[in-house]
Nucleic acid binder design. Sequence first.
DNA 1: ACCTGAACACCGTTCAAGT
DNA 2: ACCTGAACACCGTTCAAGT
Lengths: 203, 203
Amino acid sequence: MAEKTTYHHGDLRQALIDGAIALITEQDVNSLSLREVARRVGVSHAAPYRHFADKESLLAAVAEEGFIGLTAAMQRGIAQATDHPLAQLEATGVAYVQFAIAHPAHYRVMFGGLPGEPIADPERGQAGWQAFQVLLQRIEAGQAAGVVRSGEAMPLAWVAWSTVHGLAMLLIDKRLPLSHPQEIEDLAKFVTHTLVEGLARSA
Amino acid sequence: MAEKTTYHHGDLRQALIDGAIALITEQDVNSLSLREVARRVGVSHAAPYRHFADKESLLAAVAEEGFIGLTAAMQRGIAQATDHPLAQLEATGVAYVQFAIAHPAHYRVMFGGLPGEPIADPERGQAGWQAFQVLLQRIEAGQAAGVVRSGEAMPLAWVAWSTVHGLAMLLIDKRLPLSHPQEIEDLAKFVTHTLVEGLARSA
DNA sequence: ACCTGAACACCGTTCAAGT
DNA sequence: ACCTGAACACCGTTCAAGT
């Protein structure tokens, strides 16, 4: 065993993913070319096809890693919040938006691309579903504690996801006239707070 | 005067915009090529450069028309709702989402593309600002009637916009496990309703 | 097994040249 | 003024051929 380097990169597949992420953080997503990734990694432009069926498959792998990072970011946010379910829900939303604006190109690959597979669906999109689960579980915890309105949790999670996703996209695309990081963080908190008031059990 | 056809299309600029819209509704946005639009319209691949600086400029014109259509759709939705400010706010949100899912490719051009200019900003993006204004005015009307929480209207409008934009994008990208139009419409109503409860003046 | 180099059918953009 | 045709520098993808 211990089969060292099967070729000069040890793991070309991972090198291509890392190279793609590095390139999209430098430039933007649309101008990313498979040939440029290959060049960067030091391999011929045809080599990636040993590991990915096409450009879209490579981007799907990049998206997968992004969702793993998003999940971790939300969990860190939750860990730093107080125990109150509504506080944890807010922390989840704020962490979501902050992850997106910290990694705009990566976030665009996760969503902006292809039609995409359903995420709020356990069957497909493993990493995406994991991320969505974090949000869903905070809703369910809020319901169990009696501070989030009752009823099916799933549609409530879709409301929450729509709001944070929409804010993230508007901020990333520079659609809102905000620039200072502090303004952006304040808005993320305000939006998430207003959302949570809509989800909260009235009275 | 009455200078008939300055060239064979009378108005190549508009023909290119219409051609681009026709193509994106048939196929998807990313695979749209300027050369194909030119072919479709019956002119050489270099001719578009007489009217648009580059591909991005043509897409910006397409987006502009989209925002005009979105504004009209929201206004129709408001006209059909009752006079109650919260009902009008909900109607605006539902009309927004329905426009997006009825014209997914067009909506993607309006947002998905380029970094984009600020929309919630009167100086730039005329048509986009007009659309945003419809939403903002419903918020202000709700405040005037005392049924929407007081404070600056703009951040409240950003909350609302984030929610409907996020839902629209998730639906267009098929991120939610819904397919039947009725399910989608029900969700649009539910999401908008929950949003409005967050914006409403508590008690 | 894994990678390369040439090839194919496309792009966006520019520019001299035509009417 | 408005449009064309050739040209340039790129793409994504395929495939025979090399080791």
